[in-house]
């Protein structure tokens, strides 16, 4: 069984520790991840900005990278969601459409794979901190990832979970939105940080490094001492 890691460009370039945590955590269950080096970016920035020809170019690279994988696992609901958009992207190209559908059906976000496929909810971790959770929009709304992270977090020993007020509100990232509409995005992320601060949590956890980079960047700008982690990091931290 070939299980491939889709690291996503952001975690590859800026947050390799997330990929490492995933690899080490899954190895504990005998799952060896394989890493096709030709992979790049899912193409979401181009897709969401309306540049579908450009999005197709990178999508083809991703499709090729994972062609003979049985499972593709990514530490991001949003990039996984983008792969789930590939069939729309290739709706007028029958040969590519088949490949896009095949990739869609085998691509999972990290917690989906861990909980729904492997059936793991208790990784045996201990993490003695006050933690809050931001459910990223694409993961929770479009991919339906709601119960999986909660199932994992509630079973971590010592973890004190504090719900994030208005958790379902977008953090304001939105890819190129944060650049094009920087002041609206800034207002949104500032509000999100206010809510994080209200929880008095030591750690903010999530499933998408893009959103977390946005919130962490704002928290740091405001000198708020909240640690920001991907859930894979937290779980691995708790078992090592």
């Amino acid at each position: 069984m070939k299980v491939s890691l889709f690291i996503t460009c952001l975690s590859d370039a800026i947050y390799p520790r997330v990929g490492e945590a995933m690899v080490r955590l899954l190895a504990r269950y005998g799952v060896t991840l394989e890493f096709p080096p030709i992979q790049t970016c899912c193409g979401q920035p181009a897709f969401n900005s309306g540049y579908w020809n450009e999005a197709r170019t990178t999508a083809k690279t991703i499709i090729e990278a994972f062609e003979d994988s049985d499972f593709v696992i990514a530490p991001s609901g949003s990039c996984t969601g983008m792969i789930h958009h590939y069939p729309k992207l290739f709706e007028n190209d029958p040969a590519m459409l088949d490949k896009a559908l095949a990739l869609q059906s085998k691509t999972y976000e990290f917690t989906q794979f861990l909980v729904n496929v492997l059936g793991v909810t208790d990784v045996g971790a201990t993490f003695r901190h006050k933690v809050t959770y931001h459910p990223s929009c694409h993961g929770s709304r479009l991919m339906g990832i709601k119960d999986e992270p909660m199932a994992l977090m509630t079973r971590v020993k010592g973890l004190e979970f504090v719900p994030l007020p208005h958790a379902e509100d977008c953090c304001g990232f939105g890819g190129t939105f944060a650049v094009k509409m920087s002041d609206i995005s800034g207002a949104m992320v500032s509000e999100k940080s206010d809510h994080v601060k209200e929880t008095e949590a030591e750690v903010l956890v999530g499933l998408d490094m893009a959103c977390l980079m946005n919130i962490a960047g704002n928290l740091r700008y405001r000198n708020e001492p909240v640690k920001v982690m991907h859930l894979a990091e937290l779980l691995y931290e708790g078992v090592r």
Binding site: N48, C137, H138, R141, E168, D169, G174, F177
Partner: peptide, 10 residues
């Protein structure tokens, strides 16, 4: 362009 595409509307 004035949307982060968060899907709350949907």
């Amino acid at each position: 362009n004035a949307s982060s595409l968060c899907g709350a509307c949907y």
